[in-house]
Design a protein around this nucleic acid. Structure first.
Lengths: 184, 184
DNA sequence: ATACTCATGTAAGCTGTTACATGATTCT
DNA sequence: AGAATCATGTAACAGCTTACATGAGTAT
């Protein structure tokens, strides 16, 4: 028998788009990009080059509908999730395969190969990684007000996890750096 | 004036390859792949489709040399890092730009959009994410002996960070799941 | 005036994965 | 004998980023 489960047609980018249209209501492509950049980019980034084509694919699958909503003479398309789209979103959310988990962390890579750097340079290398993670944590802290606006607590849960993660990593790298010079 | 700093020519994949040839000595392309899979894949994955072409690019840049070392009738090329390669590796390690930090975590994405799933399904969704992270942590624990073989402690530092991270995430998701049903 | 934000879109290019093809050696 | 591992490699594809082009509205 044919298997037409909607979830099969949902690409990773499609999930993000559908997810935002589902929790945040109708938005333009540009608006979706802003939403992602303002809350999800630290664990899932998207670019315009993905959003606009993917919106058209989602429309073909009838998971979203488009409506012209110009602002004066400025073109603007407002995208909305359909009942079929909500169903697909729900199916993905509750499906049992874990899905993508990917990481590319050059800081970790540097730590891994740190033995290849002269001993006297190592504290500085580690220090830069610490500073970086603290900076990311601070950037995330600044978007707390936005996350709090969501209709439920989950975006805040995610954001707090991200902040805690980067602070935790910063501390960990700081501790490793401290071990480098045991007697100052 | 022309800028011939070697680091400019080092692609992300090139760094991993050069790093392993630097800390683990000469290896075949296949061997490099095994090293990466056995220790770095959780924060930096590579595939054969990258390794073999990249090795030839690194040879062109004179960061590595190739030597035929067949095993009986089985072809085998052993790659070694050159002094110029070591220099490039050191320059990358101590360079001040933070470099790539990317993450694609479908578990986080699901948590973010969990409001789109029926309330009764949410604990199961969260439970699967918890199980996943525990499983990854266990897989990483199994490669502890390998990391301990390294000539310095850094690979173990990285591995322990990875294990702690996934356990920490599992606990965090478990706590969020527990909050779902406040009075059992 | 000028700069910034809102808004849509694409083309070129880079990176990376998957799947396949091939074949020798070693282990059970 | 058969399975697993060692070993090299590529072609097709998928996914994503960067840079560009275009232009209207809004704030300074």
């Amino acid at each position: 028998v044919l298997d037409f489960r909607a979830v099969a047609a949902l690409s990773p980018t499609g999930r993000v788009i559908l997810g935002f249209l589902g929790v945040a209501g109708p938005h333009s492509g540009y608006g979706i990009k802003r939403l992602v950049d303002g809350s999800a980019r630290f664990f899932w980034a998207v670019s315009y080059g993905q959003i606009y084509p993917e919106l058209r694919r989602l429309r073909e699958a009838e998971f979203v509908t488009a409506k012209d909503k110009p602002t004066g003479g400025r073109a603007r398309v407002e995208w909305s999730i359909t009942p079929a789209g909500s169903r697909a979103l729900r199916e993905w959310l509750t499906s049992d395969d874990g899905g993508t988990f990917e990481m590319r962390d050059e800081g970790m890579l540097r730590l891994f190969f740190l033995g290849g750097a002269p001993e006297e340079d190592r504290p500085a290398v580690l220090g830069r990684i610490v500073a970086r993670h603290r900076q990311i944590a601070q950037q995330l802290e600044r978007i707390r007000p936005f996350a709090a606006e969501a209709p439920n607590k989950y975006p805040s849960d995610v954001l707090e996890t991200g902040i805690a993660y980067h602070e935790w990593l910063a501390e960990r790298f700081a501790r490793i750096a401290a071990e480098e010079e045991p007697d100052g």
